[in-house]
Design a protein around this nucleic acid. Sequence first.
DNA 1: AGCTCTGGCCGGAAAT
DNA 2: ATTTCCGGCCAG
Length: 728
Amino acid sequence: MATMDISRLVRSDYDRVVAVETDSAGRAVLFRRGTDDVVTREIMPFQPWLLVSGPELARALKDTSEITPLRGDGMHRVRVSFPSWSAYEDAVKDLKDLTGMNPSAPLAPYRLFTDKAQQILTMLPARLFRGMAFQDLRRMQLDIETRTADGFHFPDALRASDEVLLVSLKDSTGWECCLSVAQAGEAAMLKRMLELIQERDPDVIEGHNIFNFDLDYLDKRCKRHKIPFVLGRSRRPTFARSSRFTAGERTATYKRYDIYGRHVVDTWHLVQLYDVAHRDMDGHGLKPAARYFGVAAENRTYVAGNDITRIFEEDPETLMKYCMDDVRETDALSRILSPSYFYQAQLVPYSYQSCITRGNATRIDALLCAEYMQANASLPIPQQAQPLQGALTEAQHSGVFQNVWHVDVRSLYPSIILARGMCPAGDSERAFGRILGELRNFRLAAKDAMREASGHEKENYSALQGSFKILINSFYGYTAFSQGTFNDYVMANAITREGREILGSMRDFLQDAGAIIVEMDTDGIYFTPPPGMTDQAEMERRVQAILPPGIEVELDASYQAMYGYKSKNYALLDWDGRVSVTGAALKSRGLEPFQRRYMMEHLTMLLTGREAELPALYERFETDIREHRLPLKDFAKREILSMAPRLYAEKLAAKATKRSAAYELALQAKKEYLQGDSVEFYVTGDKKNVSVVGNARLLEEADEQQRDENIPYYLDKLAQLKAKFAEG
DNA sequence: AGCTCTGGCCGGAAAT
DNA sequence: ATTTCCGGCCAG
């Protein structure tokens, strides 16, 4: 199918590349997995490069090999290349001295691309994995179990008495293996593990929390035994450094490992990225994630963290099974979550590993900059951030409504950009709209192909179209990305303004037709149809008729009933009797579980016309709380530490933040809490009005036998909850 | 070292 | 006791 040819979208002169690296001479090293499944190493001529603002600055640099003028009037209009990485590094130093500016300064007259893989992929040009399907990738899963010395609660690789007990390995060919320290000691086991990785020669090494735990631990144990920690191809050493990972509102620091010729994929990252979009997971650990995705092995062996050492001594077979189940689950999670990034790596000039750890807008930036370099076009510099008005939201009515329809605009912002032919001010090559349009067409083709395919093929098309959907929707966000080379705040404002106008005109039309608008947000409206209107297709046609060309609506769902609470907060009853709840006020993870449960039951009664049962529901909860019938967990709030507890302490001392129970508890806790960790705690005391700071206990430090939850406090919360729904 | 955006609800702490 | 502000979490 011609439209499904990804090479039309972005050029790559090489197929089946699984990794790119550099050698000291500055050349590019391509690792390619042939159709015979053998990996070859090829050296390609390549010269490290950077951009400067003009020929004078270019000529001021020493040891350059090529100076290429770039067309157009962007700020960075000359590309300079160098015979080696050391010449490049020297030039970077000289540029700092010559200009007196750091590369990160907004007006610096030079620009660096510090990611070497990006430099190579951009210029060759090449992209990873072209001509390959996800199944062609050789993925290896790794998991270790460790001994925690008596008297300690958590593993510590630096403690002499701790050690690796088991290493489980598995790869995508079906090969599996479990090494034990009991066979010949830790040093021999580590050496064998390193040998096996060389033999199996995976393109990707996967694990759950592999960056912060397994690799770090193995690294430290290898150092102790003076075994070189060589995981890379060509027996290259492994590098680690501190880095940060962002998923939605939370960032986590992690120890980033770079393994020569391979990629490291942490399924913990994949799970968090997934949950940013879905926000319905119970936790991001391997076990909850495996259960969530329905891939937990049946009769799976579970071993609690603090039992590992004991079980290893008493029943090593059981621990080995447990460890094997872990790598199998890691593989299963990866098979679900990583294909989307595999396909993005075919487009974006980043390594596969970077496609996962870096944000959507950054990937789009890399894509656009690469197009410019291919066209020998100059690059603009980002606009300074300006205020941006967002979407239109209204909750017009609260309360229960019967027979509610939902209409929404398909891909609102991308459609506006394409329909109006919008183009960022700095995009002289008009690459933004062209790539967006091609991505959209490609996605539609992939969706069509998905419908016709089956098995692996269907999954592949599904991953392909799904990952393009995410990229496509990020194009709007990119226009307001402060570091985006082609950001444009005027355009961003024009996009949202037209979005508000479109949604507003749909609202006016529906109201004039006699519909009742319950709630609307950004690109969709929930409403009760005008009296006498029963034909959804006809309604869709009428709404469509008032919209400009290129803007398509879809009357995609209807519901038995809807309870509108406030903006972005509502509950729906579908025709099969299922209730779904939307909005932070109704289902936030920050709410105590008993509140969430009460709300769910209360809302279900409201939606199904069982208001008469509400008093009994309330009484049941009241009694349960009063008589300690609920587990302590039901009173625990969960908060994620967005900064390191130590940083909180500093900010508090400087009066730069307010006191917070979660951080105070984390600081006092027996275990060490880090940024990104979640803290579960409940309120103690015996008075309704207590300050939470100073009257809270960590759930894990609680004693179910000596209950101390604050009953008046929680009864008051229940009363407030009831009152909340009684209004309106 | 790396980062898409705004709008909105809510609880808790501090200020009034 | 009431208001203001901030951080957390969520919708899209």
